[in-house]
């Protein structure tokens, strides 16, 4: 097989590498958009109780609670996959185990997202 040019080193062709790369970008953009909204609403605290209490009260509706669950799903993936990237970048030998590392990310993700969805799901059901 012809060797790909060196500068194409980060091009993936399917597999976990490609999917984790795409999900890392999508979750990153989603979290950044949320961050702008969250900073804007929390900044209202600086203006006193009136506006902030109005806004957080409005946040207690079911739609926002579903978005909160979505946010947790995005943040947790970005965090765990980010740790995998950092590990491989600083310890290149870990690349030999990249499949196992991705399996660990998926395993930890499931272990952590289930209780998170349970807690937020309770709030969602109560808010209906």
């Amino acid at each position: 097989m012809a060797r790909l040019p060196e500068r194409l080193g980060t091009v993936y062709k399917g597999g976990q590498g490609q999917w984790s790369w795409a999900l890392h970008r999508i979750s990153g953009v989603a979290v950044l958009l949320f961050l702008f909204v969250h900073i804007a609403d929390t900044a209202l605290v600086g203006f006193g109780p009136k506006f902030y209490n109005q806004v957080v009260h409005a946040y207690h509706n079911p739609v926002i609670r579903l978005l909160e669950i979505g946010l947790a799903a995005m943040v947790l993936f970005h965090a765990l996959n980010g740790l995998r990237i950092i590990l491989i970048d600083f310890f290149p030998k870990m690349a030999d185990y990249h499949k196992q590392l991705f399996q660990i990310v998926v395993g930890l993700y499931i272990v952590l997202i289930v209780p998170a969805v349970f807690f937020m799901g309770r709030g969602f059901i109560r808010s209906l």
């Binding site: 929390t42 605290v45 006193g48 109780p49 902030y52 209490n53 957080v56 009260h57 946040y59 207690h60 609670r65 909160e68 947790a72 209780p115 998170a116 807690f119 937020m120 709030g123 109560r126």
Partner: peptide, 17 residues
């Protein structure tokens, strides 16, 4: 803030303050 202690239900000005 979001999971334990009641999550966002108890988040208001007094909580953040």
């Amino acid at each position: 803030v979001h999971l334990i202690g009641g999550g966002i239900d108890r988040v208001d000005f007094a909580f953040v303050s």
